[in-house]
Design a protein around this nucleic acid. Structure first.
Lengths: 133, 133
DNA sequence: CTAAGTGCAAAATGTTTGCATACTT
DNA sequence: AAGTATGCAAACATTTTGCACTTAG
């Protein structure tokens, strides 16, 4: 039930795997592949849907729309946090051991299982903090 | 700076306060208030924006669009964390020392100043985690 | 050959904006 | 009176769907 292996599917997967952006939207993929490979928008959405269903890709909603991230078959090894600057809008990718302990702490002490891929912390980045006062 | 007190604003606030839905979208509010009170869609969005800016209402993105939740003006929400259950919609207020160390850690190690009053962590609450098994 | 996948264009959602009018203070 | 807020409609942005055609297995 995995479906066919098509050129378009591989292109989308490649884009997800090789992107260095912190967040990839369907629009990003569609725009790029339309230009370079003439892939249709609908195909991008339909393939992403399948990949999410198969657990190959994770989908999460962010303010400007849904984002997709390749996670492979391995499951939920993604332990990074997102910090979004309320002033300049920068999205910062953070990975550190203190933060990795956060999820387990909340689960153990508060009975709540945090989904890091859906969580964004808001505030002010260094530049905006120093610049704006 | 707070803006005028209008009939529409009060209606929106009332809807948010009295709704028993787990998630309230701008569309929910707009549809209801258009029918019963002839309030325009744009007004709903504009008022919600202001309420979010004022810290009176919390906004979070979910798959079908953005959702809004009344949290009141009590400034004490700056001091603790919020956990939002993606399943039942419960908003849990958490206050503990481990979490209190989170802000300082991020500020010191990552140069980012987290605004707790605007940050919500998503996941599953205890009830929904157990129920889903 | 058959079922699944594709591109296009249109439609369905969700959100924002321009503008003339109405309301709050 | 001055400054906001409102309703409407049009503009935008994102995602979905109908359909005829192509392609993988």
């Amino acid at each position: 039930m995995t479906g066919y292996k098509t050129r378009q599917r591989e292109l989308i997967l490649d884009y997800l795997k090789n992107s260095d952006k912190p967040h990839v939207t369907a629009g990003d993929i569609a725009a790029h592949l339309r230009e370079t490979e003439n892939v249709g928008t609908a195909t991008v959405y339909r393939q992403l849907d399948k990949m999410v269903t198969d657990g190959l890709v994770r989908k999460y909603s962010l303010d400007g729309g849904a984002c997709y991230q390749y996670v492979g078959g391995g499951g939920d090894c993604h332990e990074h946090f997102h910090l979004k600057c309320l002033n300049c809008g920068a999205l910062i990718h953070v990975d550190c051991e203190f933060l990795s302990g956060l999820g387990p702490h909340i689960l153990e002490h508060h009975g709540f299982q945090v989904d890091n891929s859906r969580t964004v912390m808001y505030g002010l980045c260094r530049k905006c903090r120093e610049g704006a006062k």
